[in-house]
Amino acid sequence: MIDRLKDLWVHRELLYNLTVKELKVKYKRSVLGFLWSFMNPLIMLAVFSLVFSILVKNDAMNWFVVYLMSGLLPWLFFVNCLMQSVGTVVGNPGLVKKVYFPRETLPLAAIGANIFHFFMQMAVFFIFLLIIGWHFSIYLLFFPLVFLLEVTFTLGLCMFLSAANVYLRDVQHFVEVATMAWFWLTPIVYPIGMAMNALGEWFRLYLLNPMTNIIQLWQFIIYNPHYYAAKVYKFPDKYPAVNYLSFWGILGTSLLAVFLLVFGYYYFVRKERGFAEQI
């Protein structure tokens, strides 16, 4: 596996080129081209602001749209990575059957392109926050760490799924359905307190979802619940209802992410030898 990492390092330029290709190809032959990266979050912001300030009024939380976006953007990054990388090996038979190169560059390039989009979208989001005079939390300094955690978790999962998909094409379809369910099992469009109230004993199970922890971290550092939601959703055990983070939850998620990355990469490298025969 060390050899494989070295090989990947030798091909780092390929990884870069493939990532750039993903970005270029995505917006080729469109008039606005690159601007779409910015349009996406802008339109989301506009629509959600409209909906949540006029149609669905939620008086319990200040700036619900910011809460929503701070969880939704990282979630979309995660889902787009999964959906786009899972088919990369199967989708490039011309390359896989005809040229040698470390095959992990294919899913990695898809993730690389999504990382770029994520930062573009985050930039737009933060400009919006600055304009509305957002009261940032000091925890925002943890941005790089939270991002690292999510990327680690995503990488491992993507490696595993894109390799498994070569042998079992159901994976691709499964991911589509599963992410949809997963989305609603993660506190993105609702505060976690609602789940806590509704689930009772089952809430412990709900907390096992690693994405719950990751998304909550994002909401914690961007939305700044101490300032914007301190007075609402108080529960008997004194936790703010828009955030239910625990040391053990974060540690467990981090360990799981690292384990997934190692396992996913190992699985990919082991299965890779048969790729050219299977697609």
């Binding site: 190809v25 011309g94 040229v99 040698y100």
Partner: peptide, 15 residues
């Protein structure tokens, strides 16, 4: 090694 198993394998039409 450079292998010419298929010419233009991996060409991107939109580039």
């Amino acid at each position: 090694i450079a292998a010419l198993l298929e010419l233009g394998a991996g060409f991107q039409p939109d580039l």
